[in-house]
Protein backbone atom coordinates (compact mmCIF):
# COMPACT_ATOMS: atom_id res chain seq x y z
CA UNK A 1 0.00 0.00 0.00
CA UNK A 2 1.31 3.46 -0.82
CA UNK A 3 1.70 6.22 1.72
CA UNK A 4 -0.57 9.20 1.07
CA UNK A 5 -0.57 12.57 2.78
CA UNK A 6 -3.98 14.23 2.86
CA UNK A 7 -4.24 17.73 4.39
CA UNK A 8 -6.52 17.98 7.45
CA UNK A 9 -10.01 19.49 7.36
CA UNK A 10 -9.02 22.87 8.84
CA UNK A 11 -6.02 23.10 6.57
CA UNK A 12 -8.23 22.46 3.53
CA UNK A 13 -10.88 25.01 4.50
CA UNK A 14 -8.24 27.57 5.44
CA UNK A 15 -6.44 27.15 2.10
CA UNK A 16 -9.62 28.28 0.32
CA UNK A 17 -10.01 31.18 2.72
CA UNK A 18 -6.42 32.19 1.98
CA UNK A 19 -7.03 32.10 -1.76
CA UNK A 20 -9.88 34.60 -1.45
CA UNK A 21 -8.01 36.75 1.03
CA UNK A 22 -5.01 36.89 -1.34
CA UNK A 23 -7.19 38.01 -4.27
CA UNK A 24 -8.99 40.60 -2.15
CA UNK A 25 -5.85 42.06 -0.63
CA UNK A 26 -4.21 42.52 -4.02
CA UNK A 27 -6.43 45.55 -4.48
CA UNK A 28 -6.85 46.45 -0.85
CA UNK A 29 -7.21 50.18 -1.38
CA UNK A 30 -9.98 49.97 -3.97
CA UNK A 31 -11.66 47.03 -2.23
CA UNK A 32 -11.39 48.66 1.19
CA UNK A 33 -12.71 52.02 0.00
CA UNK A 34 -16.49 51.31 0.09
CA UNK A 35 -16.96 50.36 3.78
CA UNK A 36 -15.26 53.55 4.93
CA UNK A 37 -16.85 55.96 2.51
CA UNK A 38 -20.34 54.49 2.10
CA UNK A 39 -21.51 55.17 5.67
CA UNK A 40 -20.32 58.77 5.44
CA UNK A 41 -22.24 59.30 2.21
CA UNK A 42 -25.27 57.47 3.52
CA UNK A 43 -25.35 59.30 6.83
CA UNK A 44 -24.82 62.65 5.15
CA UNK A 45 -27.66 62.02 2.71
CA UNK A 46 -30.22 60.18 4.85
CA UNK A 47 -29.21 60.49 8.46
CA UNK A 48 -28.08 64.08 8.73
CA UNK A 49 -30.08 65.49 5.82
CA UNK A 50 -33.39 63.82 6.61
CA UNK A 51 -32.58 63.74 10.31
CA UNK A 52 -32.93 67.52 10.58
CA UNK A 53 -36.62 67.07 9.92
CA UNK A 54 -37.08 64.21 12.38
CA UNK A 55 -36.88 64.56 16.14
CA UNK A 56 -35.72 61.68 18.25
CA UNK A 57 -36.52 58.19 17.13
CA UNK A 58 -36.55 55.24 19.55
CA UNK A 59 -34.97 57.52 22.07
CA UNK A 60 -32.00 58.63 19.98
CA UNK A 61 -31.07 61.00 17.18
CA UNK A 62 -32.21 59.78 13.76
CA UNK A 63 -28.66 59.80 12.37
CA UNK A 64 -27.52 57.67 15.29
CA UNK A 65 -30.45 55.30 14.73
CA UNK A 66 -29.52 54.82 11.07
CA UNK A 67 -25.79 54.61 11.77
CA UNK A 68 -26.14 51.61 14.06
CA UNK A 69 -28.14 49.74 11.40
CA UNK A 70 -25.50 50.35 8.76
CA UNK A 71 -22.98 48.23 10.71
CA UNK A 72 -25.21 45.23 9.98
CA UNK A 73 -26.42 46.07 6.47
CA UNK A 74 -22.89 46.55 5.11
CA UNK A 75 -22.11 42.97 6.13
CA UNK A 76 -25.25 41.72 4.39
CA UNK A 77 -24.43 43.48 1.13
CA UNK A 78 -20.76 42.55 0.97
CA UNK A 79 -21.51 38.85 1.59
CA UNK A 80 -24.36 38.90 -0.90
CA UNK A 81 -22.22 40.35 -3.70
CA UNK A 82 -19.30 38.04 -2.89
CA UNK A 83 -21.35 34.86 -3.16
CA UNK A 84 -23.61 35.87 -6.01
CA UNK A 85 -21.62 37.72 -8.68
CA UNK A 86 -18.24 36.72 -7.23
CA UNK A 87 -19.00 33.02 -7.01
CA UNK A 88 -20.80 32.95 -10.34
CA UNK A 89 -17.83 34.52 -12.13
CA UNK A 90 -15.43 32.07 -10.47
CA UNK A 91 -17.72 29.18 -11.35
CA UNK A 92 -18.81 29.94 -14.89
CA UNK A 93 -16.19 32.28 -16.36
CA UNK A 94 -12.96 31.50 -14.53
CA UNK A 95 -13.58 27.77 -13.85
CA UNK A 96 -11.75 28.15 -10.54
CA UNK A 97 -13.77 25.43 -8.82
CA UNK A 98 -12.77 22.83 -11.42
CA UNK A 99 -9.15 23.40 -10.49
CA UNK A 100 -9.87 23.51 -6.74
CA UNK A 101 -11.95 20.33 -6.80
CA UNK A 102 -9.25 18.36 -8.59
CA UNK A 103 -7.11 18.75 -5.45
CA UNK A 104 -7.90 17.06 -2.09
CA UNK A 105 -10.39 19.88 -1.41
CA UNK A 106 -13.98 18.61 -1.36
CA UNK A 107 -17.00 20.65 -2.30
CA UNK A 108 -17.82 20.99 1.38
CA UNK A 109 -14.33 22.34 2.18
CA UNK A 110 -14.39 24.70 -0.80
CA UNK A 111 -17.72 26.34 -0.05
CA UNK A 112 -17.37 26.34 3.71
CA UNK A 113 -14.11 28.24 3.12
CA UNK A 114 -15.93 30.56 0.76
CA UNK A 115 -18.77 31.27 3.23
CA UNK A 116 -16.26 31.83 6.04
CA UNK A 117 -14.41 34.24 3.80
CA UNK A 118 -17.69 36.12 3.30
CA UNK A 119 -18.01 36.15 7.10
CA UNK A 120 -14.52 37.60 7.45
CA UNK A 121 -15.33 40.26 4.88
CA UNK A 122 -18.51 41.07 6.81
CA UNK A 123 -16.45 41.41 9.99
CA UNK A 124 -14.05 43.77 8.23
CA UNK A 125 -16.80 45.86 6.64
CA UNK A 126 -18.72 46.13 9.94
CA UNK A 127 -15.52 47.15 11.71
CA UNK A 128 -14.87 49.86 9.13
CA UNK A 129 -18.39 51.27 9.46
CA UNK A 130 -18.11 51.05 13.24
CA UNK A 131 -14.87 53.01 13.15
CA UNK A 132 -16.41 55.72 10.98
CA UNK A 133 -19.56 56.12 13.09
CA UNK A 134 -17.47 56.08 16.30
CA UNK A 135 -15.47 58.99 14.94
CA UNK A 136 -18.75 60.74 14.14
CA UNK A 137 -19.80 60.25 17.77
CA UNK A 138 -22.66 57.78 17.25
CA UNK A 139 -21.39 55.07 19.60
CA UNK A 140 -22.08 55.13 23.34
CA UNK A 141 -20.87 51.84 24.75
CA UNK A 142 -17.63 49.81 24.98
CA UNK A 143 -19.76 46.76 24.08
CA UNK A 144 -19.52 48.07 20.52
CA UNK A 145 -16.33 46.01 20.06
CA UNK A 146 -18.56 42.92 19.75
CA UNK A 147 -20.59 44.44 16.93
CA UNK A 148 -18.23 43.30 14.11
CA UNK A 149 -18.69 39.69 15.28
CA UNK A 150 -22.43 40.04 14.73
CA UNK A 151 -21.54 41.61 11.37
CA UNK A 152 -19.47 38.50 10.59
CA UNK A 153 -22.35 36.19 11.55
CA UNK A 154 -24.73 38.26 9.41
CA UNK A 155 -22.35 37.91 6.49
CA UNK A 156 -22.12 34.13 6.96
CA UNK A 157 -25.93 33.87 6.83
CA UNK A 158 -26.31 36.16 3.83
CA UNK A 159 -23.34 34.52 2.11
CA UNK A 160 -25.06 31.15 2.50
CA UNK A 161 -28.39 32.54 1.25
CA UNK A 162 -26.61 34.06 -1.74
CA UNK A 163 -24.96 30.72 -2.47
CA UNK A 164 -28.35 29.02 -2.54
CA UNK A 165 -29.43 31.53 -5.20
CA UNK A 166 -26.16 31.08 -7.11
CA UNK A 167 -26.61 27.32 -7.15
CA UNK A 168 -29.83 27.86 -9.00
CA UNK A 169 -29.26 30.72 -11.51
CA UNK A 170 -28.34 29.98 -15.11
CA UNK A 171 -27.60 33.56 -16.12
CA UNK A 172 -25.70 36.23 -14.21
CA UNK A 173 -28.47 38.81 -14.80
CA UNK A 174 -30.90 36.72 -12.75
CA UNK A 175 -29.16 38.03 -9.63
CA UNK A 176 -31.00 41.33 -10.18
CA UNK A 177 -34.19 39.65 -8.98
CA UNK A 178 -32.57 38.53 -5.76
CA UNK A 179 -30.68 41.72 -4.99
CA UNK A 180 -33.35 44.24 -5.94
CA UNK A 181 -36.28 41.98 -5.20
CA UNK A 182 -35.12 40.49 -1.87
CA UNK A 183 -32.08 42.21 -0.38
CA UNK A 184 -33.27 45.79 -0.88
CA UNK A 185 -36.70 45.13 0.73
CA UNK A 186 -34.92 43.31 3.57
CA UNK A 187 -32.81 46.41 4.12
CA UNK A 188 -35.91 48.59 4.44
CA UNK A 189 -37.86 46.11 6.58
CA UNK A 190 -35.13 45.30 9.08
CA UNK A 191 -35.45 48.38 11.26
CA UNK A 192 -32.51 50.32 9.84
CA UNK A 193 -34.45 53.24 8.39
CA UNK A 194 -37.63 52.98 10.46
CA UNK A 195 -38.35 51.24 13.80
CA UNK A 196 -40.10 47.90 13.24
CA UNK A 197 -43.06 48.82 15.47
CA UNK A 198 -43.89 51.71 13.16
CA UNK A 199 -44.27 49.43 10.15
CA UNK A 200 -47.71 48.12 9.08
CA UNK A 201 -48.50 44.96 11.03
CA UNK A 202 -47.99 42.60 8.07
CA UNK A 203 -44.48 43.98 7.52
CA UNK A 204 -43.74 43.69 11.21
CA UNK A 205 -44.50 39.98 10.97
CA UNK A 206 -42.39 39.57 7.85
CA UNK A 207 -39.50 41.46 9.41
CA UNK A 208 -39.28 38.91 12.19
CA UNK A 209 -38.21 36.28 9.65
CA UNK A 210 -35.49 38.48 8.18
CA UNK A 211 -32.09 37.65 9.70
CA UNK A 212 -30.93 41.25 9.20
CA UNK A 213 -33.63 42.46 11.63
CA UNK A 214 -32.09 40.38 14.40
CA UNK A 215 -28.55 41.49 13.55
CA UNK A 216 -29.64 45.14 13.62
CA UNK A 217 -31.30 44.67 17.03
CA UNK A 218 -28.23 43.06 18.55
CA UNK A 219 -25.81 45.58 17.06
CA UNK A 220 -27.93 48.55 18.09
CA UNK A 221 -28.01 47.23 21.66
CA UNK A 222 -24.24 46.75 21.65
CA UNK A 223 -23.61 50.24 20.31
CA UNK A 224 -25.93 51.93 22.80
CA UNK A 225 -25.15 49.63 25.71
CA UNK A 226 -28.83 49.05 26.50
CA UNK A 227 -30.02 45.46 26.36
CA UNK A 228 -33.52 44.02 26.57
CA UNK A 229 -34.61 40.37 26.74
CA UNK A 230 -35.45 40.42 23.03
CA UNK A 231 -31.70 40.45 22.24
CA UNK A 232 -31.54 36.95 23.65
CA UNK A 233 -34.11 35.78 21.07
CA UNK A 234 -32.23 37.61 18.31
CA UNK A 235 -29.06 35.71 19.20
CA UNK A 236 -30.90 32.38 19.23
CA UNK A 237 -32.46 33.16 15.85
CA UNK A 238 -29.06 33.82 14.25
CA UNK A 239 -27.46 30.82 15.98
CA UNK A 240 -30.13 28.45 14.64
CA UNK A 241 -30.52 30.03 11.23
CA UNK A 242 -26.78 30.12 10.46
CA UNK A 243 -25.96 26.37 10.42
CA UNK A 244 -29.22 25.64 8.62
CA UNK A 245 -28.43 28.12 5.85
CA UNK A 246 -24.82 26.99 5.51
CA UNK A 247 -25.76 23.30 5.26
CA UNK A 248 -28.50 23.96 2.74
CA UNK A 249 -26.24 26.21 0.65
CA UNK A 250 -23.51 23.58 0.41
CA UNK A 251 -26.05 20.92 -0.46
CA UNK A 252 -27.48 23.08 -3.25
CA UNK A 253 -24.12 24.01 -4.78
CA UNK A 254 -23.03 20.37 -4.62
CA UNK A 255 -26.09 19.44 -6.64
CA UNK A 256 -25.13 21.99 -9.26
CA UNK A 257 -21.41 21.29 -9.53
CA UNK A 258 -21.17 17.54 -9.04
CA UNK A 259 -22.93 15.81 -11.90
Amino acid sequence: MIEIHVPGFFQRVFSIFLRHQKCYCKHLFSNGFPPFVEPIVFLAAIGIGLGRHIDNIAGMKYSQFVASGLVASTAMFTATFELTYGTYVRMEFENIYDSILSTPISIFDAFLGEILWAGAKGFFFSSAVLLVISLLGFVNSPFCVFAPFIGGATAVIYGALALIITSWVKDINTFNFYITGCCTPMFFLSGIILPINELPIIFQKISYFIPLTHSVNIIRSLLLGSFSYSVFYDIIFLAVFMPLCVSLAILCIKKRLIV
Binding site: I2, H5, V6, S15, I16, L18, C23, N95, S99, I100
Partner: peptide
Amino acid sequence: SIIGVVPQDNNLDPQLTVGENLVIYARFFG
Protein backbone atom coordinates in the same frame (compact mmCIF):
# COMPACT_ATOMS: atom_id res chain seq x y z
CA SER B 1 -3.80 13.68 -3.37
CA ILE B 2 -1.86 11.37 -5.69
CA ILE B 3 -3.28 12.60 -9.00
CA GLY B 4 -2.14 15.64 -10.94
CA VAL B 5 -4.76 17.00 -13.32
CA VAL B 6 -4.17 18.93 -16.54
CA PRO B 7 -7.74 19.74 -17.60
CA GLN B 8 -8.90 20.59 -21.10
CA ASP B 9 -9.30 24.29 -20.26
CA ASN B 10 -6.51 26.28 -18.65
CA ASN B 11 -8.37 27.00 -15.43
CA LEU B 12 -5.62 29.18 -13.95
CA ASP B 13 -6.61 31.84 -11.44
CA PRO B 14 -6.66 35.03 -13.56
CA GLN B 15 -6.56 37.28 -10.51
CA LEU B 16 -3.18 35.95 -9.40
CA THR B 17 0.33 35.95 -10.84
CA VAL B 18 2.14 32.82 -12.02
CA GLY B 19 3.95 32.43 -8.68
CA GLU B 20 0.83 33.10 -6.63
CA ASN B 21 -1.13 30.56 -8.64
CA LEU B 22 1.45 27.93 -7.79
CA VAL B 23 1.66 28.79 -4.09
CA ILE B 24 -2.12 28.80 -3.65
CA TYR B 25 -2.44 25.49 -5.50
CA ALA B 26 0.35 23.91 -3.43
CA ARG B 27 -1.55 24.90 -0.29
CA PHE B 28 -4.62 23.03 -1.51
CA PHE B 29 -2.48 19.89 -1.21
CA GLY B 30 -1.36 20.93 2.26
